[in-house]
Amino acid sequence: MKGGRWITETGSSTYLSEAVAIWFRDLRGEFRTRYAVNAILMFAVTTLIAVSFSIGSFRIGEGEQPFLYAVLLWIILVFSALSGLSRSFVKEEEASTMDVLKLSARPQAVFLGKLFFNLTLLAALELIIVPSFILLMDYKIELPGLFVAMVVSGGVGLGGGTTIVAAMIAQASARGALFSVLSFPLLLPLMITAIKGCEKAAVGTNNSGWPEVRIAVAYSVVMIVMSLFLFPLIWEE
């Protein structure tokens, strides 16, 4: 064992190193239990299959496809995220590990760790669902760069919004319903922006979709920065 009291060495740790420790712990736990992944992917895949079989590429006129496909894609992504991303905080409460975590980690590090975990889940969701949606629906995208930027920036905003709401509802009794009810108005502006951006990427007339990407990036930055300030208040009693 090292000499002296270890407590004197805590000054050397950074928020980022603590956040990474929480992120990797959550990933390791998720890899072994697959609670959140199963919930998100089951919802996403069944919705995608239902949409592709019931609508397909031939039921919608070519002129309406860019808008309606963008709507369907973001409905699948947002509601899949809502089905599982609350687990990041809820599982701490359900497993009675919240107090030990409160005693061990600084609030901002906990928020960042949970955010990284939720962003990892969202990245996996988007990597599976977006290409599958494009293939199954025969989704033609004229500006792939803009489309990817929109999906990525929208995903980061989605992760930021759902993480802070998950922290807020973790200690409530009706968590599931509360998570959707609180998240939806918070995510609606982002969802509308992302739908517009994806529609413009599909139409591809010009690069006029970038304002939507900028709005999504600004939304994500504001959401994450504000959450970092607000989270200690939520995390405390």
Partner: peptide
């Protein structure tokens, strides 16, 4: 995990 999150560095031994 608790070593890392407390910032005391993980020492397996």
């Amino acid at each position: 995990f608790f070593c890392k999150v407390r910032g005391i560095g993980y020492d397996r031994e």
